[in-house]
């Protein structure tokens, strides 16, 4: 589905990603965790084609859509228009621009359809951002910092929607998260990105039992100790 091999991305002389390789299988949910400045957003922006790699390859089997960090909506456009613009690439296909197909997945959005996106709460904006990405009919969804700045209940609701989406449509998810506990909870597999390289990878269960991961990302307690 998604195969990233030896990806190198530089900003001028600074190397942001240094030989990153990762895979996301069909319908799989995979997490990428790591601290601030590790290169997580650089990776996802490279996957989306905003940044160009110096070397390495990205193979996507199907369409990839990004839910960017910080929502990045069009604040003065309505929710419905934000959604419609998510279908820009497939705009000529019949029905592609109709936001109603998103209301079936995220029913709350229908109520806010006419509101300017900038007036919504953070959680509602995140839902619009997810909906806008879904308008592209992605086979894989790259979600950058789903939980950042949102209340736990709001995050739980968004996570439920992602699970449903994955279960009902088989949409693969690459979840880029600072909140490792949330990421391990939602995804079967995970990668740890630090200073531009993948330092660890494996099943979420394995990783959350590892002392190194626990110290860095789970507040010092492995998952078994925490529970």
């Amino acid at each position: 589905m998604l195969e990233v091999t030896d990806l190198v991305v530089r900003y001028g002389n600074a190397t942001a990603l240094d030989g990153v390789s990762l895979q996301v299988g069909e319908g799989e949910m995979v997490a990428l965790v790591g601290p601030n400045g590790a290169g997580k957003s650089t990776l996802v922006n490279t996957l989306s084609g905003i940044l160009r790699p110096v070397s390495g390859s990205i193979e996507v089997d199907g369409r990839l859509a990004q839910v960017p960090e910080g929502r990045q909506l069009f604040p003065d456009l309505s929710v419905a228009d934000n959604l419609r613009l998510g279908a820009w690439r497939s705009r000529r296909r019949a029905g592609a621009r109709d936001p109603r197909r998103i209301y079936e997945i995220l029913p709350d959005l229908e109520r806010m359809a006419k509101q300017p996106a900038g007036t919504l709460s953070g959680g509602q904006q995140q839902m619009v951002a997810v909906g806008r990405a879904l308008m592209a009919d992605p086979d894989i969804l790259a979600v950058d910092e789903l939980s950042l700045g949102l209340a736990p209940l709001v995050v739980a609701d968004l996570v439920r929607h992602l699970r449903e989406l994955n279960a009902s449509r088989g949409t693969a998810v690459l979840l880029i998260e600072q909140n490792a506990r949330l990421a391990f909870d939602l995804c079967e597999r995970a990668y740890v990105l630090e200073s531009g390289t993948i330092t660890m990878s494996g099943s979420s269960a394995e990783l959350s039992r590892s002392d190194a991961v626990a110290r860095a990302y789970l507040g010092g307690l492995t998952d078994s100790e925490a529970s």
Binding site: F74, L85, R89, R132, A136
Partner: peptide, 22 residues
């Protein structure tokens, strides 16, 4: 119009517009 909204989208958030493929 869809094209007009895409122009407004570029004005409003060029990064998000690029992500959408505009």
């Amino acid at each position: 119009t869809y094209l007009g909204k895409a122009l407004s989208a570029c004005a409003s958030n060029p990064y998000a517009a690029r992500l959408a493929g505009i």
